[in-house]
């Protein structure tokens, strides 16, 4: 009888302890591992379906983004805002105050002349300069995202200053 009691005691104490150990081990292994793509993603050809007749919904007032479409430009290897760029950003700030629901992505770009590592950082500083200026004018930082492309996405493909100045820019994308 005594022996039986001892076994029961052991079960009560030891078995939950084991359960607990297993639980702990599970919790440790939580490094996020993303699987790796091994081939080109296949693009499913879209099936042509007869488009349903567009519902004659009242068209939403189309946002006029003209003010946001102009780029601001920088000197070679510089991220400071020139007077023209500041003028431009003043107008953009006004527009952003008038359209409080939109968010904006500010892209930083560089001309091709530098090396790509340094230029990626330079593009980052250019987009951050524009963002900081807008934030100082009262635009919420949460509405402004920056992304640097460095030399990776030039808008003008030539290899001279006619093109280079156009590529040293911050570009504004309105996300509605």
């Amino acid at each position: 009888m005594k022996k039986k009691l001892w076994i029961i005691m052991a079960l009560i104490l030891v078995v939950p302890a084991f359960l607990f150990t297993v639980g702990c081990q599970k919790r440790v292994a939580t490094v996020v591992k993303e699987p790796v793509a091994k081939e080109e993603p296949k693009v499913e050809p879209k099936k042509e379906e007869p488009a349903p007749a567009p519902a004659p919904a009242p068209a939403p007032a189309k946002l006029d983004t003209t003010v946001m479409q102009s780029d601001i430009y920088f000197d070679f290897d510089k991220s400071n805002l020139k007077p023209e760029a500041q003028e431009n950003l003043l107008q953009k700030a006004e527009w952003l105050r008038d359209n409080p629901d939109v968010t904006v992505t500010i892209e930083g770009h560089c001309d091709e002349r530098g090396t790509n590592e340094y230029n990626l950082a330079l593009g980052d500083r250019r987009s951050e300069s524009a963002k900081a200026f807008l934030v100082n004018l009262g635009i919420s930082a949460s509405r402004l995202t920056t992304i640097s492309y460095g030399v990776e996405r030039p808008t003008c493909m030539g290899h001279n200053e006619d093109c280079w100045w156009k590529n040293r820019r911050a570009h504004f994308v309105v996300n509605q």
């Binding site: 490094v31 996020v32 591992k33 993303e34 699987p35 790796v36 091994k38 590592e117 990626l120 950082a121 980052d124 951050e128 920056t146 640097s148």
Partner: peptide, 15 residues
């Protein structure tokens, strides 16, 4: 083993 860890903070994560 073909998996990746990522560092995806705001701004650039490079070099």
């Amino acid at each position: 083993d073909d998996y990746e860890n990522s560092i995806a903070r705001e701004g650039i994560n490079i070099t």
